[in-house]
Amino acid sequence: MKVINVNVLEATMTYSKEDGYVGKVHFGVEGHKNEYEIALHSKRGKEWGYGLFFLHESGKEEELLALEDLLEEDDELFDFLIETAKEKLEKQE
């Protein structure tokens, strides 16, 4: 598996009893022209759902799909993005 370099630009996360954990991370990927936003959600902080989007303007769909495939395959990358957002939650409390 190819290791990719991810540059985190910004991360946030909030928690409420109604919504659970809601977070997002803005990041760039080495070799990709556009930056991304991943929106994260989990009721209890165990199983995470996500949406992956272009951050500023639309870019190459192939790059977005390749990144989505990578997130599905690479648990370390996905966990890194979740942990990056969770760190921001702890600092807000």
Rank of each mutant, 00 (worst) to 15 (best):
80 F>Y: 15
58 S>G: 12
29 V>R: 08
61 E>I: 10
9 L>T: 09
68 E>C: 05
40 L>K: 00
13 M>W: 00
31 G>V: 14
21 Y>N: 02
44 R>D: 15
15 Y>E: 07
71 L>M: 11
74 D>L: 08
20 G>V: 05
25 V>Q: 07
74 D>V: 12
57 E>G: 08
60 K>I: 10
58 S>H: 06
93 E>S: 00
62 E>A: 13
86 K>Q: 11
9 L>F: 02
62 E>L: 00
54 F>L: 09
59 G>Q: 07
65 L>A: 09
20 G>F: 05
85 A>T: 04
61 E>T: 12
56 H>M: 11
26 H>C: 05
62 E>M: 02
47 E>S: 14
17 K>P: 04
10 E>V: 02
33 K>D: 06
88 K>Y: 00
84 T>G: 01
34 N>F: 01
45 G>Q: 06
76 E>P: 04
86 K>I: 09
80 F>K: 14
63 E>M: 09
23 G>S: 07
67 L>C: 03
32 H>D: 11
41 H>N: 13
43 K>W: 11
67 L>S: 02
11 A>Y: 00
42 S>R: 09
64 L>R: 12
20 G>I: 09
18 E>R: 14
19 D>W: 03
36 Y>G: 00
52 L>I: 10
91 K>N: 12
24 K>H: 09
17 K>R: 14
78 F>V: 02
35 E>T: 08
43 K>G: 01
53 F>I: 01
88 K>M: 06
87 E>Y: 02
40 L>H: 01
60 K>C: 06
84 T>M: 01
36 Y>P: 00
1 M>C: 08
12 T>S: 13
54 F>Y: 15
82 I>L: 01
62 E>S: 13
49 G>F: 14
42 S>H: 08
56 H>Y: 12
47 E>G: 07
51 G>R: 14
